[in-house]
């Protein structure tokens, strides 16, 4: 098994942390993983992305040309990476910010109104966790419980935010 994911959006949308949660979950699940961020000035307000490779074996290249899955949190990211997704791959589109439809017909597309669900969960900042929930349901890579445990662990120092994040994870999971 090897799954290559590109996550992209505006700086501040939780692009990098969404990728990190996947990486933490992968380790908790005994898998090999690399998380490689874009870095530099674009982190401030511009577009930001990270590449996550999850594998049963040691990851060779952390660089992804053709992802199995693109998670596009804003419009520029969809335009930038849409054509690179593997035929038969998946694009998760954050429809709360992206009104356009994916033009390709050789990929599976999931439209997810992450912001609406995040507000339902109790905080708009949990939108990236909504997407995380949807992704794990779609990919079947990790159980909901395992990722929920990871979230509890990583937010251990900020216990107040845990309930909304767990709720967001569940709403995202059940949205597809």
């Amino acid at each position: 098994m090897e799954e290559k994911i590109i996550i992209a959006g505006f700086g501040g949308q939780g692009v990098l942390s969404l990728g990190q949660f996947l990486a933490y979950a992968a380790i908790a699940d005994g898998k090999e993983v690399t998380w490689l961020p874009s870095y530099g000035p674009e982190m401030r307000g511009g577009t930001s992305n990270c590449s996550v490779v999850i594998s049963d074996e040691k990851v060779a290249s952390p660089i992804i040309s053709n992802p199995d899955c693109l998670i596009a949190l804003n419009k520029p990211s969809l335009y930038k990476f849409e054509s690179r997704v593997k035929p038969g791959g998946t694009i998760i589109v954050n429809s709360s910010l992206i009104s356009d439809k994916v033009s390709r017909d050789d990929v599976k597309v999931i439209y997810l109104n992450s912001l609406e669900l995040a507000q339902e969960a109790g905080h708009p900042k949990t939108a990236n966790i909504v997407v995380l929930g949807a992704y794990i349901k779609h990919s079947g890579l990790f159980s909901l419980d395992l990722v929920a445990e990871t979230i509890k662990e990583k937010f251990a120092e900020k216990p107040k935010v845990i309930p909304a994040n767990l709720k967001a994870l569940e709403l995202g999971y059940n949205a597809i």
Partner: peptide
């Protein structure tokens, strides 16, 4: 290099 510095791995 920048990749080695920025990458996260187990």
């Amino acid at each position: 290099d920048g990749m080695l510095g920025q990458i996260m791995e187990a």
